[in-house]
């Protein structure tokens, strides 16, 4: 299972990076979302996956009766999902605003901060 997930994670990363390299901001955002999923799956897999039961102690017990899934990576992923979602939302709205203000979706044409024909440095003292 872990091997299968590892390969799937590789695919997630590949797709995410491929989308991030497209110059269209919306596609890059899709890449951001997929990258987040890839990382979450990575953390999940690295905590070792063996088809176990949820990390919940049955009612009335002090300790679980059978082996349970590793809860720590799950907690880390929960934190990471939330953070990832916040950043995704910000970048999404940023893209939206950038589209409104700069009238561009393509990073090629977004050259306000670093203009293409920026002036040469003066040759004087």
């Amino acid at each position: 299972m872990e091997t299968a997930l590892a390969i799937l994670i590789g695919l997630f990363f590949t797709v995410a990076i491929y989308l991030l390299l497209s110059r269209s901001l919306i596609r890059m955002l899709l890449g951001v979302a997929i990258l987040g999923n890839a990382v979450n799956l990575l953390i999940f897999t690295i905590g070792r996956v063996t088809r176990e039961v949820p990390p919940i102690v049955p009612n009335g017990q002090y300790q679980p009766l059978e082996p349970i899934a590793n809860p720590l990576p799950q907690a880390l992923i929960l934190t990471a999902i939330v953070i990832g979602f916040s950043l995704f939302a910000f970048l999404l709205v940023l893209t939206y605003r950038a589209y409104q203000e700069l009238n561009a979706d393509n990073t090629d044409t977004m050259r306000v901060a670093e203009p293409e024909d920026s002036p040469r440095p003066p040759l004087s003292y």
Partner: peptide, 16 residues
Amino acid sequence: KIQLDAAIKYGFINFL
């Protein structure tokens, strides 16, 4: 405008 453009570059690379 310049802030938005800068934030795009800043944002994506730092996110990565």
